[in-house]
């Protein structure tokens, strides 16, 4: 591990200022991902700005009947909040299917959105990885890629985003609110926050240097059921092979792309009255498997059809 310096600013303004003073610094929240990456010599921030105790840990009702979730709420706190569980069961289900109880007790909402891929080659510093070392190549591309992405990949990167929570938030049309390094507030959709790899997989989000996520805002849920279902190799503490968040007729997928993947073609087909299997197939037709991960196409298709069968039950009968 490289030596680094550390500070814990007292308020949000000082945190932003600290980052402006040291653009190579990183925010530290729960530390469940960043500290592992530092110990493994994958991240080498010279300076950490600990935002874990900033007053951003509230869950508040919004005027339109939704919720504003502070970026420093813990995953456990959000998943066990009575309002979250009644208004957005899909979110509570997604969060508790991620990590382990110990991790969820430490991990924060903002940090969860910023966590980095679990691609085994990203973690193996002896292998090429364009995310870790831009320009070095992608070892997963010709490698053991059973767990890699089938949507939105490039020849530079076929990794997936590991967040379960983000998949549910994408299906709920949630937005993040941020404070930029200049002190301006802005907002963007969770579904648009992460970038596809393209030629620059090392740039993972639309956030600018020093920009801080302050909250996640969830609008009222559309009618219909909500389901998060995750397929994984073991019952707990394992990343998704694939996952689906179905919110009425909205569909977001996890484990298939470097971002939570809204199945827009499926959603449009459902709106057009097309039957579920065909509607699911419309999005799957654009998938690009890389060999060992081709099972994900069938798997996500079956999983989504089953989930929509439940969330749309009654409405389509």
């Amino acid at each position: 591990m490289k030596p680094f310096t550390y500070e814990r600013p007292k308020d949000i303004a000082s945190a932003i200022k600290a980052m402006r003073a040291n653009p190579a610094a990183k925010f530290l929240a729960g530390g469940t991902n960043l500290l592992d990456l530092m110990k493994s010599e994958i991240e080498h921030p010279p300076h950490l700005v600990d935002i874990g105790r900033l007053p951003l840990a509230a869950i508040e009702n919004t005027r339109d009947g939704g919720l504003r979730i502070g970026a420093m709420t813990t995953n456990t706190q959000v998943a066990s909040d009575a309002r979250v569980r009644s208004l957005y069961p899909v979110l509570a289900q997604a969060i508790v299917s991620g990590g382990s109880a110990q991790l969820r007790n430490k991990a924060t909402t903002g940090g969860n959105l910023m966590q980095r891929t679990r691609c085994a080659y990203f973690y193996d510093t002896a292998k090429p990885c364009n995310k870790r070392l831009p320009g070095s190549g992608c070892a997963a591309l010709g490698g053991l890629n059973r767990n890699s992405a089938i949507f939105g990949t490039s020849d530079a990167c076929i990794a997936t985003n590991p967040s379960d929570m983000a998949v549910a938030l994408a299906a709920l049309d949630a937005r993040i609110e941020t404070l930029t390094a200049e002190g301006a507030t802005r907002s963007l959709a969770v579904a648009d926050m992460h970038r596809l790899p393209g030629d620059t997989p090392e740039i993972e989000t639309e956030l600018k240097s020093g920009e801080l996520i302050t909250s996640v805002i969830i609008p009222p849920a559309p009618p219909g059921g909500q389901i998060y279902r995750k397929v994984r190799d073991r019952a707990s503490y394992a990343g998704a092979l694939v996952s689906v968040a179905a919110v009425g007729g909205r569909v977001a997928w996890g484990g298939v792309a470097l971002k939570p993947w809204r199945a827009e073609k499926t959603e449009a087909a459902l709106v057009a009255g097309i039957e579920i299997p065909e509607a699911v197939g419309a999005e799957l037709a654009t998938a690009e498997p890389r060999g060992a991960n081709s099972f994900k196409i069938t798997l996500i298709g079956r999983l989504t059809a089953a989930a929509l069968g439940e969330t749309l039950a009654g409405r389509r009968a």
Partner: peptide, 25 residues
């Protein structure tokens, strides 16, 4: 733990990748 034939190395090198049963299993 599959061997990457290009390198002769194991794919999984930590306990998040090499899956022993968890309590829930």
């Amino acid at each position: 733990n599959p061997i990457d034939p290009r390198y002769g190395s194991f794919l999984n090198q930590d306990m998040a990748g090499y899956l022993v049963p968890s309590h829930a299993d």
